[in-house]
């Protein structure tokens, strides 16, 4: 038997390895999701429509969509800015700051939720100051947005950073020599190079935000039609024994996620690469 991947024309041993890999991925991913979609449409399109258009389901999906979009946009701005500052300016403790940006990749999202509720919770110093101003953060929408921003923090930064490093500094020098202001130099030299990465990173944060569960459960309070997001709604429906409703809303989210994923892949192909993963 020849080792896998040795030749482009695989031998019989390699064929078995390929079959094993393909069936592992198929069984693990394709089969369960097919069942999800099957259960969602089992009772017909009408039943599916009814389940996803109930007041609670609609407001949960709506909340998940708009918070996700907002977080995507905020990430596009702050992520690009962070990448730029890390790339260009001398910062005190720069390696530390750069490592901190990656922290949400490895920290459990549930722990992220715990952190936020300690800092901004109703019992905390900051939380009390804000509630004196009439703003609730934890168990309210700002908490959801903060949690989503925390867990998606690295996506745009890590997508943009390598692209910035690949831009030839001579191009910027040329722009400045020709009299361009720093802002104009950024806009005309760096921005065209990084914008596919910004879009792909921000779509990925939108995708991640739409699926986020661990941190939201802790910070949102999960009040129906107020702070109940779609994943938490799905979880509630599973717990209360309505698998068909859960599957319907789940399928709806799955379709949205697939569409987003497709767009992100196209954007990534244009940057020619990697770096933008959850």
């Amino acid at each position: 038997m020849k080792p896998v991947g040795f030749a482009l024309l695989p031998g019989p041993g390699e064929l078995w390895v390929r079959r094993g890999i393909v069936s592992y991925i198929g069984l693990l991913v394709l089969v369960p999701f097919s069942v999800l979609v099957f259960v969602a449409f089992q009772d017909g399109l009408g039943a599916f429509w009814e389940r996803i258009t109930s007041d609670v389901a609609l407001s949960a999906v709506g909340l998940t969509l708009w918070t996700g979009l907002l977080v995507g946009v905020l990430n596009a701005f702050f992520g690009t800015l962070t990448a730029w500052v890390l790339f260009r300016y001398p910062l005190p403790l720069k390696p530390l700051v750069s490592a901190v940006v990656d922290l949400p990749l490895s920290i459990p999202t549930l722990v992220a939720g715990v952190m936020l509720s300690i800092l901004y919770g109703p019992a905390s110093l900051l939380g009390q100051k804000f509630s004196a101003l009439g703003i609730d953060i934890i168990f309210a929408k700002p908490g959801i947005i903060l949690a989503l921003l925390l867990v998606t923090l690295p996506f745009v930064v890590r997508a943009v950073e390598p692209v910035l490093e690949e831009v030839d500094p001579a191009e910027e020098e040329a722009a400045v020599v020709l009299g361009a202001s720093p802002w104009r130099a950024f806009r005309t030299v760096y921005f065209p190079a990084i914008y596919p990465a910004v879009i792909s990173g921000s779509l990925r944060s939108l995708g991640r935000a739409m699926g986020e569960f661990g941190s939201i459960v802790i910070v949102a309070g999960n009040i129906p039609q107020e702070t109940l997001t779609a994943p938490v709604y799905i979880f509630g429906e599973i717990e209360s024994g309505h698998p068909a409703t859960a599957a319907s809303v789940g399928s709806l989210l799955l379709f949205i996620a697939l569409a987003l994923h497709g767009i992100a892949r196209i954007a990534e192909k244009r940057v020619g690469g990697r770096h933008a993963q959850a």
Binding site: V29, L36, R204, G207, R208, M210, G211, E212, F213, G214, A230, P231, V232, I234, F235, I238, G250, L253, L254, A257, L258, L260, H261, Q277, A278
Partner: peptide, 8 residues
């Protein structure tokens, strides 16, 4: 798996 919610 990167694109969907773990709950799903």
């Amino acid at each position: 798996p990167l694109a969907v919610s773990p709950v799903m």
